[in-house]
């Protein structure tokens, strides 16, 4: 049971949040210019990182804001939490 520090509301139980998968996957600006392979990569293929993973969470039962978390997917330790558009802080090691 994770405890996640919402950048707007503070620490809350995991049950208040919803998970959005890998962060920093930017939607292509001109999808029509991509071939099937490039589009498929954007749609489905993921790093699925074992270790430090940048991911999106939404405080869906709270402020409903999306933000980013760097979390270790093995220990589940949260290394850093930052708002969309910001850069991660904290110990990246």
């Amino acid at each position: 049971m994770l405890e996640i520090e919402c950048p707007w509301c503070g620490s809350r139980d995991q049950d208040e949040f919803s998970y959005g998968g890998e962060a920093h996957i930017v939607r292509p600006l001109s999808p029509e210019n991509l071939n099937d392979r490039e589009w498929g990569d954007y749609l489905f293929f993921r790093d699925n990182k074992k270790g430090q993973h940048a991911e999106q969470w939404c405080h869906s039962a709270g402020c409903r804001r999306w933000f980013n978390v760097i979390r270790d997917t093995v220990s589940y330790r949260i290394v850093s939490v930052y708002r969309s558009g910001d850069s991660p802080s904290g110990d990246p090691s």
Binding site: S18, R27, Q56, C58, S60, R65, W66, S84, G85
Partner: peptide, 13 residues
């Protein structure tokens, strides 16, 4: 609702 909020916040701020 969540779908639109997400696009707005993460892709089209």
């Amino acid at each position: 609702m969540g779908w639109m909020e997400r696009w707005l916040q993460t892709e089209w701020p």
